[in-house]
Nucleic acid binder design. Structure first.
Ligand SMILES: [Mn+2]
Ligand SMILES: [Mn+2]
Ligand SMILES: [Mn+2]
Ligand SMILES: [Mn+2]
Lengths: 219, 219
DNA sequence: AAAGAAATTTAGACAAGACTAAAATATTTT
DNA sequence: AAAATATTTTAGTCTTGTCTAAATTTCTTT
């Protein structure tokens, strides 16, 4: 059995690899809230176990074995998030925190029961794809809201789950995955983005707009 | 926050205290699957934190603070067991194992949601009472099946959850908490006990019968 | 009541995973 | 291309929770 620490490192490496391409010691240090020295020492251990490839001073890459484990934990995490929302009505800004701990102690058998209960879902409450049992995951093509041109009708695909406050705000205005909305304008000088949703206009900060992924609405 | 190890020690101390009265190092060593030396060193730590009172060579007793924590974890454990059975159909011989891990990472908020979902239940799937939020627990008066005289009509109150195989056997013959059954006879020379349940007779080993708690049926 | 056996504690070691401070390497600026 | 800066690694320490072996205390037997 892998420790919770190892599982969280592998998950963090996977996420940084996906979003930034290169995985640096400092990025992991920041993401996991531990010192850079702690990251280096864990990298040594993961290398020995052949879960990552580590070139000194050059960052880190998952091996297929490491990626498989990362996706397994992400699968747990996302199934749990959706389960908590659907079965127990936990609000979407609270599910992440709970999943972060439960994901490490979920048995494969209970994972399967939850999956079945949910009807074999493909996305979590924030719109992130749920990895399959076999360790594969679909990747979608979409744009950050911050990069969309004004006057475009878009559909929300995914919202980052790491800032509960943002989630509460978005939930409050009814902005969820699958919601369609119109990008009205982008204010100059890094100002906010104005969107129209169910007839009303709302303001989304430039920074928040980086964490909202959308695709062009098909019509 | 308390570590998982501390929580499991306090829970084990509570359980031994309840069932044996005196809590010895060796009883905890056996129950937790660690060496006696490990128990002693943890007892030292729990003493310093005023969660137990420890007299050298004389065993251990929970303080009110320690008992409160033990009951809090037991509450988690039993709510989880019942929840897994009711909401996800996990069979009663599997719920314990899952609860043993999940109990340590359940938030108070999710605990409350589960409690509400279940309609504020008072017993878990094995018939054990669920401690209340305030750290109190009802204690019931009942006898071990092994001590009941033949020709008595009894109602099952509680079955120990520690042996999955026993639970599967009992489930197979339909022996659950709340079930009524007739104690037909006790075979001599520490032989098995014969019970009658829904018209059929079944055999329960003397040892297993220690772990089945019953009360006289009221009629 | 002394001897022997059993239970408990102490002493010392180890692995995991964190930290700080200092050294090594890489990157950026001048 | 040096110098200055930023990043990463190494060295050494600490805490938690485990272990084995040896010493101590308590319990049981004679
Ligand atoms: Mn986690
Ligand atoms: Mn899994
Ligand atoms: Mn436990
Ligand atoms: Mn609780």
């Amino acid at each position: 059995m892998l420790s919770q620490a190892i599982e969280d490192y592998l998950k963090a490496i996977y996420e940084v690899e996906t979003s930034e391409g290169k995985v640096s010691t400092s990025a992991l240090s920041e993401k996991l809230g531990v010192s850079p020295a702690s990251v280096t020492s864990m990298m040594k251990k993961l290398s020995e176990r052949k879960l990552i490839a580590h070139k000194r001073y050059q960052g880190v890459k998952l091996t297929p074995a490491g990626r498989k484990i990362a996706l397994e934990i992400i699968r747990h995490h996302r199934l749990i998030e959706l389960y908590l929302k659907e079965a127990l009505g936990v609000p979407w800004d609270k599910v992440h925190q709970e999943a972060e701990k439960w994901e490490h102690v979920l048995s494969e058998e209970l994972e399967d029961r939850i999956d079945e209960f949910l009807g074999y879902p493909v996305t979590d409450p924030h719109g992130s794809p749920i990895p399959r049992r076999d360790g594969t995951m679909i990747v979608r093509q979409c744009d950050a809201l911050v990069d969309v041109e004004p006057d475009t009708l878009v559909k929300v695909v995914e919202v980052s789950d790491h800032d509960p406050e943002l989630l509460r705000y978005l939930g409050g205005i009814g902005l969820y995955p699958e919601t369609e909305m119109m990008v009205v304008s982008k204010q100059p000088f890094k100002g906010p983005i104005i969107i129209e949703l169910t007839g009303k206009e709302y303001t989304i900060g430039r920074n928040a707009a980086k964490y909202i992924l959308v695709e062009k609405a098909n019509n």
